[in-house]
Design a binder for these strands. Structure first.
Lengths: 366, 366
DNA sequence: TTGTAGGCGTTATCAT
DNA sequence: ATGATAACGCCTACAA
């Protein structure tokens, strides 16, 4: 071992410094620390045979200690195995938040020769921070797209900032969490929607707020309030309820609104799912729809047009927003800086039959 | 150039043979053929500066000619750029075919240290074959999961077989297209559903078939037919319509059924979306629901419980099916053979209020 | 403008 | 059972 030139451990000659401790740990580090050759480490890591149990344990110990993760690229290059499978599926064009985001991001990636890796989260969750950290490390991503409401989860954004991984947020709240933030005119859209109801003669309009964790909830509510103010309508007590963007909370809030001494003649729900809950509750009470109660939603999800009556709602360009987020992120990654903050996207009010003019002649029974 | 050892072109010493022509073309091949160094090729491919226009063109020509695609792993290993971004998103637990498939496959991958790459398709499409080929090549996947109806698209399966890429099909039709085929008891479930209606006293039961391209469509229809036969009920002419798994076709077919001289008292739709169309059509005609018409669907998608009346339907374990497909595929990739074909999964009938006993006393008006 | 040398971190081969 | 060494295909640094 004397005269033999020490195997040049990759990375060894990097200038030492504060960053050194965070240098990627390689198979050489593990081998050295365990007093074995890299091949033995490789054997252990890949569960190959021909390793003494004692050696295996020792190596595994070091692996844990050093938190060694094999480099996927090197593995693939050398071993010709990508450890990747594909999912080829029919892309139903139906609207769905997650799918729209996916398609938008995928489109931007495809156009630029990038790949997209997924990390679904179940919120709320105590250890998202760790999950995201693991994802970013394992998946070796250059940047990350964070659709609402994840862009507002500090455990996630914190971990990312910590790891210095650039990210783009879709529809986040203020203050904007990312370098790249993509939004749409939620406020303006709800304002229009509410004005539309006012134009139909409604004077008592209830509101069901969205999930407080979503940035969009507050913006939408603002639009509602601004419309009422503009037309000199006060918000009667109890007319605003707190929902959570889901069907059940919409139904519950609708029940509360309809139980009011003077129930509203129209209800603005923070999204379609809650609007569906409102319709359901009204239906259960036998209220003639839309005659007795006008309802509007937000998102134009698939169920909006399937419900009875079909829902008047707002369509956000989520696909484009996601596409833009991914595109700007990739551009930024490639040093093609985007200085100006992205202009918010326009939304489109979709008129259907769930909101009708308040005629004063409320049809009886049916 | 004389004494200089020829640069050992990677792969050169592979035994020549029939496979040789299909060997991966590398940057060396391009360089040699273009009469330049690999660095120049690299410059061209990466759009770097300092390449004479003429040289650039020549290289690009060879690149096209040889169909050279840079090896992503080598690129990443050397350049420390993964050309991959991540999408961290909240995984709404709501049911949705695509999402369920995604989550199932993702789960299996995560558990085995695999990555999942997505390739959404828009069917029908003249050049899916090329798209899939491109995806498989570019994404360098080891295997592919094909959820319905893609497993039945011969352009896709053909391309994959051609490229010798193993794949697993979810809910394909017979004859089974893949080595690994995962199904569920569609026939049995529709049989139960139909028997349920018969048990409620219905004797005239319409059926709206699903998309003919889906293997499940035929199986479900069989279940319906078997139930009628078992109970000695004939299928009156016009009682079976051809739908396409979408809302509009369900609505259209419902109109046809309801226009029959003797319209059915119950309708079995091949999926929830068509069932929603049926409800919508009935609602437009002012038919009291569910009293005047019982409707059942299949899939238990989210809208099933949002509709009025809430839909009696069938829940398939799609998530588990996708998980199993991906798991078996990965196992196979790793040589852990699975000899026995996978047993079909059970489905679960979900009883809600859209189907009610035929009382004989049809409520008038409303 | 173009080319050469060397390294990226792993697996494969073949000795020991 | 274990290890030295050569690929793997590309990019960066530096030389010409």
């Amino acid at each position: 071992m004397g005269a033999m030139p020490a195997p040049q451990k990759p990375g060894t000659k990097l200038a030492p410094g504060p960053e050194t401790s965070r240098r990627k740990v390689t198979i050489f580090d593990v081998a050295e620390r365990a007093g074995v050759s890299i091949k033995t480490v490789s054997r252990v890591v890949n569960n190959e045979a021909n390793v003494r149990e004692k050696t295996r344990e020792k190596v595994l110990g070091v692996v844990r200690e050093l938190q060694y993760k094999p480099n996927a690229a090197a593995r693939e290059l050398s071993g010709r195995r990508s450890r990747t499978i594909g999912l080829v599926y029919e892309n139903a064009e139906e609207f769905n938040y997650t799918n729209a985001v996916l398609n938008g991001a995928l489109g931007a990636c495809e156009a630029r020769g990038y790949s997209l890796l997924l990390c679904p989260l179940n919120l709320p969750n105590p250890d998202i921070g760790e999950r995201v950290r693991g994802f970013a490390t394992q998946a070796r991503v250059e940047g990350i797209v964070l659709p609402a409401p994840v862009g507002d989860v500090v455990e996630v954004t914190g971990a990312l900032k910590d790891m210095r991984i650039p990210f783009a947020a879709i529809a986040p709240r203020d203050p904007l969490p990312a370098e790249i933030n993509i939004g749409c005119k939620d406020e303006q859209a709800t304002f229009s929607l509410t004005e539309y109801l006012i134009g139909q003669g409604h004077r008592s309009i209830g509101y069901i707020k969205g999930h407080p964790e979503h940035g969009a909830s507050a913006k939408r509510f603002s639009g509602y309030r601004r419309a009422l103010e503009k037309h000199g309508l006060a918000i009667a007590p109890g007319l605003v309820r707190q929902g959570y963007f889901d069907f059940d909370s919409g139904k519950t809030c609708a029940a509360e609104l309809l139980d009011l001494p003077e129930p509203p003649t129209a209800i603005v729900a923070g999204n379609d799912d809650m609007a569906a809950g409102v319709l359901f509750e009204a239906r259960e009470r036998g209220l003639p729809l839309p005659g007795r109660l006008s309802v509007v939603g937000f998102d134009d999800t698939r169920i909006a047009s399937r419900l009875w009556p079909p829902l008047t709602t707002v369509r956000q360009p989520i696909l484009q927003m996601a596409e833009t987020a991914a595109r700007l992120l990739i551009d930024r990654l490639n040093g093609e800086a985007t200085d100006a903050p992205q202009e918010p996207f326009d939304c489109e009010v979709v008129i259907r039959e769930s909101a009708v003019p308040l005629t004063g002649i409320v049809p009886a029974g049916c």
